[in-house]
Amino acid sequence: MTCIFCHSITAAQILTETPHFKVIFDIDPIQQGHVLILSKEHLMDLRELSEVQLLELHKLEKAIITIFEQELLVDGVSVIQNNGAIMDEGTHFHVHLVPRYKDDNFWTHQIVNQKEAALETVKLRLKRLAK
């Protein structure tokens, strides 16, 4: 399948770009101003980004959040990274920045089928990261 992020984004859709990323409005926004940060390379996982790309991504997120705070008067921003097999078919690694407001009911309508998880093992591995 052809990746829509690699082949279907037009110059007119691009709000801004950096050497490794481009920013567009989401075509199905959760909230007004909802943007996507798309990697210019067809990468499927956050872990494929170089250290340079990771730093660039976080600086871009920070700049966009600042604009949201100044222009949209948000109460906060949810940053959601999509990578791996859970992404929609025909896409690659991307980040959602969703403007948030108190009482916007963002989490209210989330219905998630809970899966059993080995949380004690995760907890132990996370503790080892700090050492």
Rank of each mutant, 00 (worst) to 15 (best):
E41K: 13
I80R: 02
Q114I: 10
D45G: 00
Q110C: 01
D88Q: 14
I64W: 03
C6H: 00
G33F: 03
E120C: 02
D75Y: 06
S39C: 15
L49S: 06
K123P: 00
Q114N: 04
A11F: 05
E71A: 12
I30C: 05
F93S: 09
A12G: 02
E89L: 14
K22E: 10
N83V: 00
E120I: 12
Q53E: 15
Q32Y: 10
G76K: 08
A12F: 03
V122T: 10
T18D: 09
L129K: 09
S78N: 15
L97M: 11
T108S: 13
A118N: 14
Y101I: 00
R47P: 00
V112T: 14
H96W: 05
F93P: 05
I4P: 00
Q110F: 11
L46C: 03
D104R: 06
K62I: 06
N82M: 02
Q81R: 09
K123R: 12
T2L: 12
E17Q: 15
Q13W: 07
H94L: 06
T66D: 13
F93I: 01
K102N: 09
H58L: 10
D88F: 11
G33T: 03
F68G: 07
H96T: 01
F68L: 03
N82C: 01
T108P: 05
Q81W: 01
T10K: 11
L38R: 05
N82Q: 12
Y101N: 04
P99Y: 01
L126H: 04
S78A: 11
D104A: 12
I27T: 07
